[in-house]
């Protein structure tokens, strides 16, 4: 059984995944309430006697998204994995979104998430065997035009799907760049804990006990202070793509 925790967006969620399906999931508004609710939602989902329910992997959504939200989810997941001596897996928000679309092998996807001002978090993904979303490059934060150019290049052709909470806002530009594309901007564009767990289930080799100590959120952009002072403290987090 795998526990998924996703806290990068406006809706946070926790889920249990077993034998190929989500067997329990609850989602709740994250804004301001995440600290208050996350642990109690988990207790509700897991029951009081946690060690006995047969958890095998903790899967944490690592973002990108809300800096604070991702940090809280990752810190809690690391502590859970540490306290239970379980392997921990990090799953990016774009991977979780694409996993939820149930696409066939070879499908090319562009994930566009809202970043600051006119910029987007951009991730190019190709669906591999067993429906595993494989990132062609770690997420970048760039303008929409640069994003569409980069995606075309990374995927060696246009994507068939553009998905994410920034897709609707830039629908005209996307349509112009990729005439045959399907744009998905409804609730399927949001990462969910069940999908975080599903991605972890499909690549169990990526889950490790050591990640309880070393997993870092994927921030993508440097902190404002690092940018202003022109130093890179290596705190922006890496991808694994």
């Amino acid at each position: 059984m795998i526990l998924g925790i996703e806290t990068s967006g406006e809706m946070a969620s926790v889920a249990l995944f077993r034998e190929g399906r989500v067997v329990g999931e609850s989602s709740f508004e994250s804004r301001m309430k995440l600290n208050q609710r996350l642990a109690s939602e988990l207790r509700e989902l897991l029951g009081a006697d946690l060690p006995s329910i047969g958890l095998e992997i903790i899967a944490a959504g690592v973002g990108p998204g809300s800096f604070t939200g991702v940090r809280m989810g990752v810190a809690l997941a690391k502590a859970l994995a540490h306290g239970l001596s379980l392997p921990l897996a990090g799953v990016s928000a774009p991977e979780a979104v694409v996993s939820g679309l149930r696409l066939t092998e070879g499908t090319k996807v562009c994930v566009l998430q809202r970043a600051r001002a006119d910029e987007v978090y951009t991730t190019a993904i190709v669906v591999e065997g067993k429906g595993i979303p494989a990132e062609r490059a770690a997420t970048q934060v760039i303008t929409i035009d640069a994003a569409l150019r980069a995606v075309q290049q990374l995927l060696e052709g246009p994507p068939s799907i553009v998905v994410g909470n920034a897709a609707e806002r830039f629908a005209d530009r996307i349509d112009a760049a990729f005439p045959a594309v399907e744009i998905i901007a409804d609730e399927r564009a949001l990462p969910k804990a069940g999908e975080v767990a599903r991605v972890a289930a499909r690549r169990p080799e990526a889950a490790e006990r050591g990640l309880a100590f070393s997993l870092v959120p994927r921030y993508v952009r440097l902190s404002q202070a690092e940018r202003e002072f022109g130093v890179d403290l290596g705190l922006s987090g890496g991808g694994h793509g």
């Binding site: 642990a39 207790r43 810190a75 859970l80």
Partner: peptide
């Protein structure tokens, strides 16, 4: 929030 989140994770894990 980071410390409290981790502490809650430990509380959940260990009871």
């Amino acid at each position: 929030l980071v410390g409290v989140s981790a502490a809650k994770g430990y509380a959940l894990a260990t009871g």
